[in-house]
């Protein structure tokens, strides 16, 4: 069983992170939108049992795509790595 306080900590970290990206790319909303799209693609692949064993995006691919997107924003990228299951 998962301790509820860990869940809320993860939720809180995710909110802070999304807010940070949104703020960072206020002048370049297309980057923020691309980030959301990468996450949605990843999630869709994860939730679709038909995509197994040929899963769509691996954690590594997600990280690579986000790394391309966040080029020059190393703090955002390293923080993103902390969310990935196999970073």
């Amino acid at each position: 069983p998962t301790p509820p306080e860990s869940d809320s900590l993860e939720f809180h970290n995710a909110i802070s992170y999304v807010n940070k990206i949104k703020t960072r790319f206020l002048e370049r909303p297309e980057i923020y939108r691309s980030f959301l799209e990468i996450l949605h693609t990843y999630q869709k692949d994860q939730l679709n049992p038909k995509s197994r064993p040929f899963r769509g995006m691996s954690e590594e691919e997600v990280f690579t795509e986000v790394a391309n997107l966040f080029r020059g924003q190393e703090d955002l990228l390293s923080e993103f790595g902390q969310f990935l299951p196999e970073a």
Binding site: S6, D7, N19, H40, Y42, Q82
Partner: peptide
Amino acid sequence: SYDFTPMDSSAVYVLSSMARQRRASLS
């Protein structure tokens, strides 16, 4: 407080699920 759209909220949801998976895989 945050001004989040539904898209933002689902990103939060995905990120926190990822973090939970990560914790599960580390423990």
